[in-house]
Amino acid sequence: MFGLLSGYFANDIAIDLGTANTLIYMQAKGIVLDEPSVVAIMQEGGPSGKKTILAVGAEAKKMLGRTPGSITAIRPMKDGVIADFTITEQMLKQFIKKVNPSRLFSSPPRIVICVPCGSTQVERRAIKESALGAGARKVELIEEPMAAAIGAGLPVEEATGSMVVDIGGGTTEVGVISLGGIVYASSVRVGGDKFDESIINYIRRNYGMLIGETTAEEIKKRIGSAFPGAEVREMEVKGRNLAEGIPRSFTISSNEILEALTEPLNQIVSAVKQALEQTPPELGADIAYKGMVLTGGGALLRDLDRLLMEETGLPVIVAEDPLTCVVRGSGKALDKLDKVTAIFTRD
């Protein structure tokens, strides 16, 4: 009977508050929410008027770049950290309410939330505060590489080195983990968003066409690749011609996108190489034998694993369901919330 009761009361949740997507995992329920981290805000009457939240998540993302003057669609996270504190808090509140409608006698949830390992103490504090403001009873922070490694099913608690590369929307996190703790971690502010930006810039430079972020993301998903492959794919894209000022369509090939992505990809490669340089030799040997694991949305970029394999000479595998690795890992960490472990960070 007590177990039943505590099942009713226990509503601990894990959140992957990402630049691009926010995912929420609930104990015993799995992933209950997967929505873009976008908030649409309506400004009522003048700049000093009341602001109301019009939509969050997928609904708000549809509005990105398509809003009239009174509505702004905002991505409150930037580079893996909070760019707009109030809006992030509101977004979290909405998301938590969506998955955890308050019930009679239910206590506010405990929340595990992940932070980029490169984030500063101020940024961590901001994330913690916003989760508390959104109604959490207690907030634990977990570093993203650790969460990603647990989610990917790596043997993090064994005395063997595991390397994980989590390529998210705003940051790429490289971590080497052994015995339940992070041995080396670094974070570069390159991720899916940077890829999109590079594609936009490339097309503007070479075609004199302006495309939006949503279109750039579409191009990346359909024909983007990180390594020259045998087949060349093409896609028709519509954008505004800068010279004429009129929308036009044109065709772009995967090789061109590869060229556009070279710079951000190089930053990721050098971050990985630097991590390997800094890894103690014993752990380096483990990694050479097992290889590294890619997680995060960026891991879905075609042939990114090939690129890293060629560049490092080590085996690289893409985790299963890379988009949800981090939140699943945080969810598994929930079970350890009451235990004393090294997987949570103390700030």
């Binding site: 099913g153 790596l154 063997t160 595998i317």
Partner: peptide, 9 residues
């Protein structure tokens, strides 16, 4: 080195 890696390989 483990099931995760076996599947990946």
């Amino acid at each position: 080195p483990g099931n995760t890696f076996a599947r990946g390989f």
